[in-house]
Design a protein around this nucleic acid. Sequence first.
DNA 1: AACCAGGTTGACG
DNA 2: CGTCAACATGGT
Length: 292
Amino acid sequence: MTPYIISDKNNTLRIGGTGDFSVFKTFDCGQCFRFDPVSLEGYKVAFSGVARGRRVTFAQNEPGELFIIGAAEEDFSLWKKYLALDTDYTAIGQSIKKDVTAPKDLDFITRAENASRGIRILRQDRWEALCSFIVSQNNNIPRIKKIIASMCETFGNDIGGAYDFPTPCALAKAGEEKIFALKTGFRAKYIADAAEKVSSGKVDLDAVAAFEKYEDAEAALLSVKGVGAKVAACTLLFGFERYDAFPVDVWIKRVLTDRFTKDFDSASFGEYRGIAQQYLFYYERYLGAENG
DNA sequence: AACCAGGTTGACG
DNA sequence: CGTCAACATGGT
């Protein structure tokens, strides 16, 4: 996949060669909490938000095209990386299905993959992913977004009309009580602990990224209060490019028991099982109801 | 008015 | 070692 700039005018990059990339599915599939749909003249779909310390809008009318609004030519490689446009998701789809043998299982993952066509796993900031998925526990997506927005407005750096995600230092300095004041509830002490451990280096995110074995990376994250297997898996999948992370929440648990053969093992999805997980989550949560 | 939300913790057998 | 209520808050 070789995306390229078609044109660069009015601070908007028009991009071609993005394959089947879907802006809507990518930003609506529950992986990222800092982007919201906006209605924009001339575009069918547009999502605005903050990433990499910049405000940006991704817009699209048809699959395969892409408009990056609020970006200059030199930002392209940065957004290409963020959106994973350099990654061959067709090959990943093949790899996921390769070792799925039972017809029932193969049929379902194929349907999920087809429904999810165009989703990319964003390469989000490590700290932001960790913190965001701590907030996500026992919580719903609209409220997760609201809490994270207020965290950014209160403790994040002003980047000109918008706010960056707060640094571990900023949140550590703020402390549990001020974090609690943002309606984070029982998660306040968890966020404070994560901020303290990351800012002090007790949890070294560079070291987490360098681990070869999943269990080693997971263990480092589990030392943060409020981080269990699910939050660790989401953090590694969305913040560390660990596609072998397989977050199991209520939806995935339900999919695996209801839609797959009894002894199906998610390891059959192979090294990209995390992406398979995202397809299953998206399919079951957004489309499963209408498809039965 | 109960019940749920992309879970985790600590207490109790 | 497995099970299970409690955890803040806001939306149905």
